[in-house]
Design a protein around this nucleic acid. Structure first.
Length: 363
DNA sequence: AACGCGTGGTG
DNA sequence: TCACCAAGCGT
């Protein structure tokens, strides 16, 4: 793509965007906070998935000040099921930092915003271009794909050199008169036309400038380095009943599913019987001895970088006093009130297995 | 620089 | 069933 073609590309892309972009709720407001929340929710998350969460979250936390004043558990509960829970913790921390140090508003300079927890290059550029018209180019998965195809980029986009080429190109293409719309247009194109599989090249407004499209090879880009294999881990968890309540434990603040509640358990060792593993893990992780273990079923679940097969058991408290190993808190909860806690999807999927036998104590 | 970090849709 | 992927960030 020659330098003289760039203005035409900008015109074509913006005209296409103006003709019919999706009426998404975060496009109805110039409130920087609303734009920010949308950008955080959309990190590695599909638009359709984020929509319901977005409406509920802003109903509950309509301003930075209201978010900052909320309890961390309330924010986590609002995020439940959306995944990548560090986003919720960081958004909350960032809101508190803004109230304490910036009068509850976004700072004037994007660099100061970029320094907040959970705000990286992408989010800072997106918020400041869309909300404030700053000429900052975004590079997200859509932009990487569109540009890799425009250039027929042989470098892997997830390599250092490939990433530099993509960023340079994004900055060169950016329409400095309408940076927010241009950024959104490029992402909208990636989401609707220049899709990962079966890209709709005939309907593309900038196909005249696309090298991969001309070569009929759009689907061959972007090139990526080989993904690592995904291990599967067998796990045993126990739903311990005591006086009609069940024991749940809270995961450490940082790391996988940080701060969420779950049924205690742990890895099944190679060759170990699942029932024995459950008994052992409950003793190790909660300090409790249990009796009457009955299998509840099997749940398969995929996390971001590994899979689990969960062997779930129900049982009765037999002896001991709760002493936690990794968990940071525990509660004995009536099964009907489990929904008040922020639970991971895998744990949520165990609940129907509980209901099937009624939620009283096992015989 | 390369991992760790969720969940649901899709071919 | 499976691999791949989605408006990334922190360490």
């Amino acid at each position: 793509m020659t330098p003289r073609e760039i203005p035409a590309l900008r015109r074509r892309l913006l005209a296409w965007y103006d003709r019919g972009h999706r009426p998404l709720p975060w496009r109805e407001s110039r409130d920087p906070y609303r734009i920010w929340v949308s950008e955080v929710m959309l990190q590695q998350t599909r638009v359709e998935t984020a929509l319901d969460y977005y409406r509920r979250f802003l109903g509950r936390f309509p301003t930075i000040a209201r978010l900052a004043a909320a309890a961390p558990e309330a924010v986590l509960k609002a995020w439940e099921g959306l995944g990548y829970y560090a986003r919720a913790r960081n958004l909350h921390r960032a809101a508190r930092a803004l109230v304490e140090r910036h009068g509850g508003r976004l700072p004037a300079e994007p660099e100061a915003f970029r320094a907040l927890p959970g705000v990286g290059d992408y989010t800072a550029a997106a918020v400041y271009s869309i909300a404030f018209g700053r000429p900052l180019a975004v590079v997200d998965g859509n932009v990487r794909r569109v540009i890799a195809r425009l250039l027929a980029l042989s470098l892997a986009v997830d390599s250092a050199a490939g990433g530099r080429r993509v960023r340079e190109t994004a900055e060169r293409l950016l329409d400095r008169g309408r940076p927010g719309d241009f950024n959104q247009a490029l992402m909208e194109l990636g989401a609707l036309v220049c899709t990962p599989r079966r890209p709709a090249c005939p309907g593309c407004p900038i196909r005249a400038f696309c090298r991969a499209g001309r070569e009929g090879a759009a689907a061959d880009y972007p090139r990526k380095t080989r993904a690592r294999p995904v291990p599967t881990v067998p796990v045993a968890v126990g739903v311990i009943f005591k006086n009609g309540r069940v024991l749940v434990t809270r995961r450490p603040e940082r790391g996988l599913l940080g701060g969420l509640w779950e049924f205690p358990g742990g890895k099944i060792e190679p060759g170990e019987d699942p029932r024995a593993a459950c008994r052992r893990e409950l003793a190790e992780e909660t300090g409790l001895a249990v009796e009457g273990l009955e299998p509840l079923g099997l749940v398969r679940h995929a996390y971001s970088h590994f899979r689990v097969v969960i062997h779930a058991f129900r049982c009765r408290f037999a002896a001991g006093r709760v002493r936690l190993r990794q968990a940071t808190a525990h509660r004995w909860v009536s099964p009907s009130r489990l929904g008040e806690l922020a639970l991971p999807q895998a744990t949520r999927r165990l609940l129907p297995l509980l209901q099937e036998r009624g939620d009283g104590a096992p015989r």
